[in-house]
């Protein structure tokens, strides 16, 4: 299943020079892997490495738009809107995409947040997988 990002007019214009394309970028979930693309950046992770996912937001513009690295928890964000997204937490941090640290989490501002949560198996009230 493929989940495109949610864009706003201003973010579409801001992110286009970075190579981010509304008609190309998004999140693909298949039986065992999640692949998120964001222009020239991407994350590919096995679903078995995902321990929880939940809807988050809304966000502040300054902290949400673009490829972002949290200095607090080293989480990665592929942000296209301030309205909200899905925050995914990994069992084992994924190899760094930007910045000097590996990423223990990933936030994705997809259009269909509930659909992505469903696809990942975290749509119920308890959104953490017990392993």
């Amino acid at each position: 299943m493929f989940f495109p990002y949610r864009f706003e007019t201003v973010t579409k214009c801001l992110l286009r020079p970075l190579g981010v394309r509304p008609d190309r970028d998004g999140v693909r979930v298949d039986a065992d892997r999640l692949v998120a693309t964001f222009g020239p950046l991407h994350v590919s992770v096995e679903r078995a490495n995902i321990t929880s996912a939940q809807a988050t937001g809304p966000y502040r513009f300054i902290t949400a738009i673009g490829p972002r690295l949290s200095f607090a928890d080293h989480g990665l964000t592929f942000g296209t809107t301030t309205r909200g997204g899905v925050c995914i937490v990994f069992d084992e941090a994924i190899r760094r995409v930007i910045g000097p640290w590996d990423h223990p989490g990933l936030s994705l501002t997809v259009e269909d947040r509930e659909g992505l949560l469903d696809a990942l198996g975290f749509s119920g009230p308890d959104r953490a997988k017990s392993s």
Binding site: G39, P40, L41, H42, V43, S44, V45, E46, A48, N49, F90, D91, E92, I94, R95, R96, V97, H103
Partner: peptide, 10 residues
């Protein structure tokens, strides 16, 4: 093993 790959497109 669980693997994760990510990176910059080149």
């Amino acid at each position: 093993d669980v693997g994760s790959e990510s990176g910059v497109a080149e």
